[in-house]
Amino acid sequence: MKHLLSIADLTREEIVSILDTAVSMHEVQDRDVKKLPTLRGRTIINFFFEDSTRTRASFEIAGKWMSADTINLTGKGTSISKGESLRDTVLTIDAMGVDMMIVRHPASGAPAQIADWVDCSIVNAGDGTHEHPSQALLDAYTLRRALGDLDGRHVAIVGDLTHSRVLRSNLLSLRALGAAVTLVAPPTLMPAGVASWAGVDGFETSYDLDEVLPRVDAVMMLRVQRERMSGGYFPTAREYAVTYGLTPRRLALLPDHAVITHPGPMNRGLEISAEAADAARSLVLDQVSAGVAVRMSILYHLLAGEGSTQ
């Protein structure tokens, strides 16, 4: 494993290995000395062309806790703003001898393109509306901790699916782990051609959240991405909240054991009500805490083994 560009590149065994190692990494978080020497002498660049709080912070913490040197770069304040091309910028960074670039970019496919240009490992930290593999892995990790083995479990993914990169990665990883998936969205936010995505099957789609909720083990609420919306996908925010938000009334439709996740940042009162976000069954903060452990495991799998030396 050299790059992490898409969940589709991972076998079920590789996914399970990353999730299992993350369990051991999670334990480090409770220690006084949060430091492992594993990646001593390795250099990791966080290259974020798009805003991020938790992904960037947790990748940086993960790298630091494994003793790698981590450096943050953003699109603003680099030569990109002087007109340098993406290719020249990443080749420049690569020529400095870094071991890994963690890339977030508004263009789908940018990390895969960069991986073709450079020698170092590339991690996709979210590209456009394509994929966000580390988020899907930490979601799977959080769900496994709450529900046990995901084989045969039923997960509903609800919300702005058209603009969601978390959706595609999660659909791939949940299917690889054997979970049944139902996608729920208003017709305007259901991705066109979702039923024919290559390589994934065994999921259904629905426009009726009330019907789906009573038969799920977990419901994954996705953010309404107003910054990516150019057209009118729904009449008003209030109408969206009433028809597709996880309201207190819908909370009561969930089975007793079912859990709630949200990759954040949350629009409280839009896709998720405060009651649902703060419910005991909400795993939102567990997801954040898992984020560091899972990303440590990702760095370990990409940088620690044989063949990872340039």
Partner: peptide, 9 residues
């Protein structure tokens, strides 16, 4: 670590 395949933890 770097002379072997990734080890399980």
């Amino acid at each position: 670590l770097r002379s072997q395949p990734t080890r399980a933890v």
